[in-house]
Simulated assay, not measured.
Amino acid sequence: MSRPIRFDVSCEEAYDYLVAPDNRPEWQSSLAAVADVQGEDNVVGQHWTDVTKARLRPHMELTDADRPHRWSERGTWRGFSATLTLCFTPVGSVCDVTVGLDMQARGIARPVGAVLNRMAPSAVRSDLKRAARILAERAGDAPTR
């Protein structure tokens, strides 16, 4: 997932939109809602529950927040855990976002974890492209890619 995704807004705007749990169902295809959000947006330790369309409810926590450069979150559900890191690079007046994803599975979930590791990167990229389109539309611009 090393190719960046272009956001036609500033890094601050992209960061603020992506880091806020309440925005997630709008751009994250697997989410129906978020619940139990506790703590302030963009503050390490903020946590919430993702309510997925598949009715899974992973616990999420913001683990790194360096606005507008980088943020990381960790999600856990039963034998699975995943860490997502987004890095924001200004390109003139717009922003490139690069993604790091590390998924782990324990015990009998290991084979499923291996499959998820292969599938998840394309899903994350697709979701981020959706977020870029949403922000471009709000800014009144057509997305560049």
Rank of each mutant, 00 (worst) to 15 (best):
L18Q: 01
D22V: 04
R24C: 02
R24E: 15
E26A: 13
E26W: 07
W27C: 11
Q28T: 15
L31R: 04
L31N: 04
V37L: 13
G39Y: 13
E40C: 12
N42Q: 14
V44Y: 10
V44A: 14
V44C: 08
G45T: 08
G45I: 06
G45F: 11
T49Y: 03
V51D: 06
T52N: 05
K53P: 11
R57W: 14
H59S: 13
T63F: 02
D64G: 09
A65T: 06
D66A: 09
P68E: 01
P68D: 04
P68I: 03
H69F: 00
H69S: 07
S72F: 11
S72A: 13
E73W: 05
R74V: 09
W77V: 04
R78G: 06
G79K: 01
S81E: 08
S81A: 13
A82W: 03
A82L: 12
T85C: 06
F88L: 05
F88D: 01
T89H: 06
T89N: 02
V91S: 09
V94Y: 09
C95Q: 07
D102V: 00
Q104D: 10
G107Y: 09
I108P: 14
I108R: 02
A109W: 08
R110W: 00
P111N: 08
P111H: 12
L116N: 00
N117I: 09
M119T: 11
A120V: 11
P121L: 08
P121Q: 13
V124P: 05
